[in-house]
């Protein structure tokens, strides 16, 4: 179960993570991309942060939609439409729900990753966000399926996400700016997969805090 307050807390924690890891994500992107991932994500989530106060009387659906819409007009790079579409789809999946059951949370992540696949036209193994997000969602589903708590499920998800980030070091980028580098992209971890791993870390921390 995730209440509206917990969803808001998750967003708030992720806002902080994007500020905290701004330089790290930018450095990763400088190695294989255009060097703005940390700057862009931080700019987008700072804009989200400025709107957080207005979210108090909104539903979960409206909160996730507002995050998505804010990202697509403030991030500036590819992560804007990608993360934006993910939040918008997740928002649509929460339509009419006062709180999210564990299955609803899984659905929101499923819809989110579906949005990213639709928008970016990428598949697993192309050194993208998907390489941490897909295994993380699988791990989460497995844990919940085994009857574990949301905190444990998200711990497992985060672990799988970081394993996915490690995996991105071993593969060639075929999507996005990094694809211009071809084989030279091997050895570098994908910045998008990394920012997505932090998203699962934020979700885990929100669940831990809520004692779920």
């Amino acid at each position: 179960m995730a209440t509206k307050a917990e969803v808001l807390n998750f967003v708030r924690i992720y806002v902080d993570k994007m500020a905290e890891h701004r330089q790290e994500l930018t450095d990763l992107d400088q190695a294989i991309g255009d060097g703005d991932h940390g700057i862009n994500m931080n700019r987008g989530f700072k804009a989200v942060d400025e709107k957080l106060l207005t979210f108090a009387d909104k539903t979960i659906e409206e909160i996730l939609n507002a995050v998505g819409m804010t990202l697509v007009s403030t991030v500036g790079g590819a992560s804007g439409p990608l993360y934006g579409t993910a939040f918008l789809r997740a928002g649509a999946s929460a339509k009419g729900k006062e709180a999210l059951s564990d299955q609803d949370v899984i659905l929101a992540f499923d819809e989110g990753v579906g949005g990213i696949q639709y928008r970016g036209k990428a598949v697993k193994g192309e050194k993208t966000i998907l390489d941490s997000m897909l295994p993380a969602i699988d791990a989460m589903k497995k844990s919940i399926g085994e009857g574990k708590s949301m905190t444990v499920a998200l711990e497992e998800a985060e672990k799988a996400a970081w394993a996915g980030v490690e995996y991105t070091k071993t593969i060639i980028a075929t999507k996005g700016r990094a694809s211009y580098l071809g084989e030279r992209s091997i050895g570098h971890q994908d910045p998008g997969a990394t920012s997505m791993a932090y998203l699962f870390q934020a979700a885990k921390e929100a669940a831990q805090k809520a004692g779920k």
Partner: peptide, 13 residues
Amino acid sequence: GMKNGDIGTDVEK
């Protein structure tokens, strides 16, 4: 660009 003139693309724009 972005609303403030920064480099980037903006769906609203």
